[in-house]
Design a protein around this nucleic acid. Structure first.
Lengths: 245, 245
DNA sequence: CGTATATTTGAGGAAACTCAAATACAGTGG
DNA sequence: CCACTGTATTTGAGTTTCCTCAAATATACG
């Protein structure tokens, strides 16, 4: 099933017409990328929105001194850049972390989607707002938490986000990134991430091998990380709009 | 003049009807707050949007251990929380840094504004996207820059944002916050912020006294901070929509 | 099998933190 | 106008966390 539909339905119910539009969007122009390629570079003025169908993508900025900061991980079902709708230049880049398949949605089709049904519009903007909420929590994470909490917090987030779209089985989810990439997302050095992961592994809180993450005791990890999933807004908030409709 | 209108016109031209609506919004229910009060607490389900007319506000999250992270500074003309439009619960708080005057815009009136003119809708969403862009840059700032760059970068941002709305004269703008509050925004300790400010002061790059900041050589500070104002999207990007209209 | 990439560990150093105390400043009531 | 109180800034001293550099081991891939 189209993972975007699945995700948006977490927020609100969608009409059959909405779903048809989304389905159409997801099958428009399909493009494949290799690992470590830019889908969009910083400074570009893209004219399509990218819907991720398979693989992992990250939002990042590269600094002059060679270091980089990853600002989001994007999973199947995520829309990369509704922003291009209003902001002309990309102020960051989108790069692949794995081989990736995306559907390119033209501005035109997107326009039609936004005019079709206020519910669909709301659902798409909800996406944008949740992304911003995640950015805010990352600010807290990087700004105020210790390395141990920070790593644990990110692992919790990745796990719970995948849980929400049915991608967790037996306490296990995908995590197809390198330690260096985690470090770039956490504002830590790769070496220190490695030591921190060792600590979590030795406490029996994580088991991460072969791009696959097991959290045998999510509650304990949640407590350690002071992780509160509220900011992910995963609980069908959109339903209150149904009442009025 | 209504500072919100001034700001949105940086993005797109507005019709007289739009401006009348915005003016109406800005004069609806006026409320005053003292310093260090919450306009909205975390977890609340607000039903109004707050438009800041005077004073400084911050978005923040308080952590269990007493530390806090400030995620945005909001200045006159800023809208606090278009998010409440779609996300029910606040996942962060809004607190005043100075005495503050806000206009409470009811969801109802906002609805009317959003339905009035697609240009106005675009302008309001542009606000949201720029806020997210600032969040992303803060992630880079906190995640990857040294304390010196970090402080300098934030001062540049505050200065340039105020410049854009005509609040800079003779290289001088307002900065009515404490060093501790800067520290909470930067993910640093207050002591270290103090030492860093001393360094900037001694290099002649800043002069900050009496809640008033002077940047005698913005270019030099910009270079030191590796500050690139692109992410603030201050350059009338919305005008390309005029062509089609 | 060889090469490139990723992970792991060690050792030493730098940046930023904490605690504590001194100084400056602002607002209040007498 | 001054003393008093609370808040904000400044400085010192010692510590912790995380970083850098470097090398060893493991893993993946053509």
């Amino acid at each position: 099933m189209n993972p975007l539909i699945r995700k948006l339905e977490r927020f609100t119910r969608l009409s059959d017409a909405d779903k048809r539009l989304l389905q159409q969007a997801a099958s428009a122009r399909i493009v494949n990328y290799d690992t470590h390629q830019d889908i969009i570079a910083e400074g570009e003025e893209p004219c399509d929105v990218n819907l991720i169908l398979a693989g992992w993508v990250c939002r990042y900025k590269q600094l002059a001194d060679g270091s980089r900061q990853i600002m989001s991980f994007l999973l199947p079902g995520d829309l990369c850049d509704l922003n291009i709708f209003l902001l002309s230049r990309m102020d960051h880049a989108l790069g692949t972390l794995t081989p990736v398949t995306v559907a390119k949605i033209s501005r035109d089709l997107l326009d039609r989607m936004l005019n079709a049904d206020p519910r669909l519009t709301r659902a798409l903007w909800w996406e944008v707002l949740v992304t911003a909420a995640i950015h805010r929590e990352w600010l807290v994470n990087i700004g105020r938490r210790s390395a141990l909490e920070r790593v644990a917090h990110l692992l919790c987030e990745i796990f719970v986000r995948q849980q929400a779209v049915g991608r967790v089985k037996d306490d296990r989810c995908e995590l197809p990134v390198t330690q260096a990439e985690l470090a770039d997302a956490l504002g830590l050095s790769a070496v220190h991430v490695n030591r921190t992961l060792r600590e979590l592994r030795q406490s029996g809180l994580i088991d991460w091998r072969d791009k696959s993450l097991v959290l045998p005791d999510l509650d304990a990890l949640t407590a350690l990380a002071r992780f509160d999933p509220d900011y992910l807004h995963l609980d069908h908030e959109g339903e209150r709009f149904e009442a009025g409709a």
